[in-house]
Structures are given as structure tokens and as C-alpha cells.
Design a binder for these strands. Structure first.
Length: 293
DNA sequence: GATTTATGACGT
DNA sequence: AACGTCATA
């Protein structure tokens, strides 16, 4: 039976990309609260990218640089160069090409934006599985990988990374003591292996860090990517989707962040994406059109 | 006058 | 096929 997807899809997203580009140009900015802003005249310029150090102070995109400085007095502000009265994004486009070139060595890439790319790893995973088995996979090869939904028990861990590792170990043990639906999960894990290597290569050759999500389709991969940022990757197995969806606001799903998401919420009177399972396809088509529904 | 600007996907 | 709308960063 077709349980939906047996593909392995990854989404790689550069962490605060414009900031990283500016930090590579000017190393003084590294490891500091830092933003990239465009146009200086009005309130110091509009912020279009924010380092994670700056986010910790509450600085966000679309803020004016002057307002951000109130939240974070030692904020570093890099400015987008202007060409002829217009913001010149050339440096970021060129950096994007560098990244895409490295990623393309590993798989066929679908560039989704200047700092994001999807890739179908199904074929690469199958190839690699011909030469290896579950026992060949070690936690050391998955240094920056989270497995969503694991660990399943909630005990207290000394650190965030200790918990990540426990979840990963639990996941790998479960895989090797092979359950029934573990084929798809094994494929995701090998996908995660490839993405670890890809991200390491991207950092080695460009200096840029990124996060990634690995799942069975683009929507889930995108969602997974956002679960553990920055500089980490997240495997989202099908089995962990129901629990995740049960508390996930509709707007968090790609393409439901705008008016459609709001209308879904209001029309059906639900909050979380998991609530949609109680409606039939026919019902959804009635409300939102044949294609959208 | 002040949340830019660009880009891609989708629908008509 | 071209154009407008929506979504995202």
C-alpha cells in the first residue's frame, strides 16, 4: 500500500545568510550581534537579516536599525551597498552561487531562493544502501542531527546536546532492531548522512553554515529544517508527524502563513494543522477550491 | 511616505 | 501565454 512517500527530500537553508556574507567580508563582525540593513536615511535603515546573537536581544527582520540598537546597544550594522539609488544584492547572489556549486556535487539541486535549496536524495540513498547497512551508521557521523520525536521518554538531560544524542541513539537502536516500517526511516537516516557531508563541504569551501531538514516531501523537509536552527539538521520521520502536528499552528506550514492559512483557521474553526485530519478531502475542496483543497 | 525588493509558484 | 495575486526571505 502507498503510505504516501518513499522519497527522501532535503531542504537546506543558510543561517542568516546575508549576515554570514558580510561577516566573511569583514571578520570583525563574526560572533557578534549583527544585522544587515538597507538604506540609511530613514531610522537607520530597514533590517533584512539578523545574526542569532542579535535575535537573542529581540532584534528581528523588518525592524528599523535605530529601533534595534535600543534593544541591543552594541549591535553591529552592516549595510547593503547601493548601486544607483538601489540596493545592490550582487554579493549575496554570488555567494549563493558558490553554495549551490558545492551542493550540486552531492545531488541535483532545486534552488528555492537565494539562500535555500531542495534536493531529492532518493537515488543517492539507494546507491549508498547497496554498500552499507544500519550497523555502519554511527552517532559520530550524525554530529549535528536531531531526530524529531526522539527521545520518546522525557527525562532531564544535562544539556541540549546530550538530549539530542540520546534521541539519536534511541533512533539508531530502534532502526537496527528493525521494526516493520523501518525501511523508510533507514532511508531518511542515510539521507541525513549525505546532508551532514554536504553541509560540511559547504562550510569548508565557502565558510557558510546552514541548517537542513530531511523528510519525505518538500513541505515536511522545510518544516523540519526550522525545528533546530542554526547549524543543525533535523530528520522528520512520518511517525513523528501526528504529535508534531497536534500542536503546530496552521501558519507554520509553508504556503499557509498568509491569507489562505487565516481563512482555513477561521472557516473551519481550528488552530493546529493536525486538526485538519477530521475533514474529508471533499469538505476541504468545497471550502478552498478543487486544487487548493 | 516609511515593513524593501526580488523571486517563484499558482491561478485566471 | 501573459498577467495578477500570494507567499517568503
Amino acid at each position: 500500500m502507498d503510505i504516501g512517500e518513499d522519497r527522501v527530500i532535503a531542504l537546506v537553508d543558510m543561517d542568516c545568510f546575508y549576515v554570514q556574507v558580510e561577516q566573511r567580508i569583514n571578520p570583525e563582525l563574526k560572533n557578534k550581534p549583527c544585522v544587515v540593513a538597507q538604506y540609511k536615511t530613514w531610522k537607520g535603515g530597514g533590517i533584512i537579516a539578523v545574526s542569532y546573537e542579535a535575535r537573542a536581544h529581540g532584534v528581528s527582520r523588518n525592524m528599523w536599525a535605530d529601533d534595534a540598537r535600543k534593544l541591543c546597544p552594541d549591535l553591529q550594522v552592516a549595510r547593503v551597498r547601493e548601486a544607483h539609488g538601489k540596493a545592490d544584492l550582487t554579493p549575496y547572489r554570488e555567494a549563493s552561487v558558490e553554495v549551490i556549486e558545492v551542493m550540486s556535487r552531492f545531488a541535483v539541486i532545486e534552488r528555492a531562493s537565494i539562500d535555500e535549496a531542495y534536493m531529492d536524495l532518493t537515488g543517492s540513498v539507494q546507491d549508498r544502501l547497496k554498500h552499507m547497512s544500519v550497523q555502519d551508521i554511527t552517532p559520530q557521523q550524525l554530529k549535528s542531527t536531531y531526530t524529531q520525536g526522539f527521545p520518546q521518554t522525557s527525562t532531564s538531560d544535562p544539556s541540549e546536546d546530550a538530549r539530542r544524542l540520546r534521541g539519536l541513539q534511541q533512533w539508531l537502536e530502534r532502526l537496527s532492531s528493525s521494526g516493520q516500517s523501518s525501511r523508510a526511516e533507514l532511508c531518511l537516516t542515510v539521507g541525513a548522512l549525505i546532508v551532514e557531508e554536504m553541509r560540511a563541504a559547504v562550510e569548508e569551501h565557502t565558510g557558510f553554515r546552514c541548517s537542513a531538514g530531511i523528510s519525505h516531501n518538500k513541505v515536511l523537509a522545510k518544516l523540519a529544517c526550522g525545528l533546530n536552527k542554526p547549524n543543525h539538521q533535523t530528520v522528520l520521520p512520518l511517525g513523528s508527524v501526528p504529535e508534531l502536528f497536534s500542536t503546530l499552528p496552521i501558519r507554520k506550514i509553508r504556503n499557509l502563513g498568509g491569507k489562505l492559512g487565516t481563512s482555513v483557521k477561521e472557516t473551519l474553526g481550528v488552530e493546529n494543522i493536525g486538526d485538519l485530519t477530521q475533514f474529508s478531502k471533499v469538505q476541504l475542496e468545497q471550502h478552498f477550491g478543487e486544487k487548493t483543497g
